[in-house]
Simulated scan of single mutants.
Amino acid sequence: MPNEMKDQYSQFGGAISEMATESLKGWRNSIGEAAITIVDQILDGKNEEERKTFFEGQIKREDGMRPCYYPENNVERPEEVFQSQIVSETFATHFKVIKNIPDDSRLEALPKAALVLSILAIDRAIELSHNGIHPGDFSSYELAKDAGPKTHRLLAEDRNGQDRISAPMWSKIIAAAKAHVKPQTSMIN
């Protein structure tokens, strides 16, 4: 915060809060829109029977996990969870949004909230597409807000109480997502 604004939060707090809320809403909506776009791409060119098969396959969950969270829907490869095309491309949106933030201004914590939001966005995109409903404003989707804490727990530990996502797995998930982010081009010619 600039020194001129120090100790004047009461005067500027409303504007700061409004700007922060709009930034968060934009971040959430961009991730939601990415999930919808990717689901549309997956379904593009599929006939009605193929679409039905896709949705039936995604409704089935094992331990709360959709098959689309795994590459090629292969739930037998738990070490590759959250590295599928749909998750990686949706999660990549987070890295696209933050790529202009200097590294020293970023939190060091793992982007768990961004991954949770990506998963919720994918779930919603599948649900809406399956039901033929226009997606609307992702930020106003109450079920996603309610499902957030449950999804955080889903990522935190498996049935045995072990972390579902180890540090090496996080590295792979982040690398898979960042592979979909174009490098920043220099503004200097």
Rank of each mutant, 00 (worst) to 15 (best):
M1Y: 07
P2I: 13
N3I: 09
N3H: 06
E4D: 08
E4M: 04
D7E: 09
Q11H: 05
F12P: 08
T21Y: 03
K25Q: 04
W27M: 08
W27H: 11
R28F: 14
R28S: 12
S30N: 05
S30L: 04
S30P: 02
G32E: 12
A35T: 08
A35R: 02
I36A: 11
T37L: 15
D40T: 11
D40F: 13
I42G: 10
I42S: 10
N47F: 01
E48R: 01
R51L: 09
K52W: 09
K52R: 15
F54V: 08
F55I: 07
K60C: 05
G64S: 14
M65F: 00
M65Q: 12
R66L: 15
Y69T: 00
Y69Q: 14
P71Y: 02
E72T: 08
E72L: 04
N73M: 09
N73D: 12
V75F: 10
V75I: 13
E76K: 15
R77E: 11
R77H: 02
R77P: 00
P78E: 13
V81T: 09
F82G: 03
Q83L: 04
Q83R: 11
S84W: 07
S84G: 13
I86G: 08
V87A: 15
A92W: 02
A92N: 03
A92E: 00
H94I: 07
F95V: 06
I98K: 11
I101N: 02
P102Q: 00
D104V: 04
D104R: 10
D104A: 05
D104T: 01
R106E: 06
E108R: 15
A109N: 13
L110E: 11
L110K: 08
L110R: 07
A113L: 13
A114G: 06
V116C: 14
V116H: 12
S118V: 00
L120H: 14
I122R: 04
I122L: 06
R124N: 14
I126N: 01
I126W: 01
E127N: 10
E127H: 03
G132K: 10
I133F: 09
H134M: 07
H134G: 02
G136Q: 03
S139P: 02
Y141G: 06
E142I: 13
E142R: 11
E142A: 06
E142F: 13
E142P: 08
L143M: 05
L143N: 10
L143V: 14
A144C: 06
K145A: 07
K145L: 13
K145R: 11
K145S: 14
D146P: 02
D146V: 01
A147F: 01
A147E: 13
K150I: 12
K150A: 10
K150Y: 07
T151K: 15
H152E: 14
R153G: 09
L154N: 03
L154V: 12
L155K: 07
L155P: 08
A156E: 15
E157T: 12
E157N: 11
D158T: 10
R159N: 11
N160T: 00
G161D: 12
I165Y: 10
P168G: 02
P168R: 03
P168W: 01
M169N: 12
M169D: 00
M169G: 00
M169L: 15
W170Q: 06
W170T: 00
W170V: 00
I174H: 03
A177P: 05
A177M: 06
A179Y: 09
V181Y: 07
K182F: 02
K182A: 09
P183C: 11
Q184M: 05
Q184C: 02
T185D: 01
S186D: 14
M187W: 00
M187T: 12
N189V: 05
